[in-house]
Amino acid sequence: MARKPKTTKAIIPVAAAVQHRPLAGTNIMPVEVYRVPGRHPAGDGPWSAEPDKVSWIDPATAIPCIMRRGTDGALRGYVGVGPDHPLAGFGEEALPHDPPIVVHGGVDYASPCEEYEPHETSVCQVRVPRAAEGRSSTPLRPPFDACTMVALAMLPDELWWFGFSCNKAYDLVPGKRHPDPLGLENGRVYRDERYVVRETTNLAAQLHAIAEGLEMPELKGERPPVGLSEYDQVPRR
Score class of each variant (00 low, 15 high):
68 R>F: 06
76 R>I: 09
76 R>L: 01
85 H>V: 12
79 V>G: 00
84 D>C: 05
69 R>G: 06
95 L>H: 02
71 T>L: 13
96 P>D: 13
87 L>D: 02
77 G>L: 01
91 G>M: 10
86 P>K: 15
72 D>R: 00
95 L>G: 03
81 V>D: 07
78 Y>Q: 04
92 E>K: 14
77 G>I: 05
90 F>P: 02
88 A>P: 06
89 G>K: 03
97 H>K: 15
82 G>E: 07
73 G>N: 08
87 L>N: 01
77 G>V: 05
80 G>R: 02
76 R>M: 10
75 L>K: 00
93 E>K: 14
73 G>M: 10
84 D>R: 15
97 H>R: 15
79 V>R: 01
82 G>M: 13
87 L>Q: 06
90 F>D: 02
69 R>T: 12
95 L>T: 06
92 E>C: 12
69 R>Y: 10
78 Y>K: 02
72 D>A: 04
67 M>F: 06
68 R>Q: 10
95 L>P: 06
84 D>P: 09
72 D>K: 04
74 A>R: 06
72 D>E: 07
87 L>S: 01
86 P>E: 13
82 G>I: 05
95 L>D: 07
90 F>H: 11
78 Y>R: 02
94 A>M: 11
89 G>V: 10
97 H>M: 15
89 G>S: 10
80 G>V: 13
77 G>D: 05
75 L>S: 02
73 G>K: 02
67 M>K: 08
80 G>M: 04
90 F>K: 04
93 E>Q: 15
86 P>L: 15
80 G>L: 02
88 A>F: 07
67 M>G: 00
92 E>W: 12
76 R>Q: 12
74 A>K: 04
90 F>L: 05
97 H>G: 14
93 E>T: 15
82 G>Y: 04
89 G>A: 11
71 T>A: 10
83 P>E: 09
67 M>W: 04
82 G>Q: 09
82 G>W: 05
94 A>Y: 11
95 L>N: 04
84 D>K: 12
93 E>P: 03
89 G>M: 01
86 P>Y: 08
80 G>T: 11
96 P>H: 11
90 F>V: 14
78 Y>E: 06
82 G>L: 12
88 A>K: 03
75 L>D: 00
67 M>C: 12
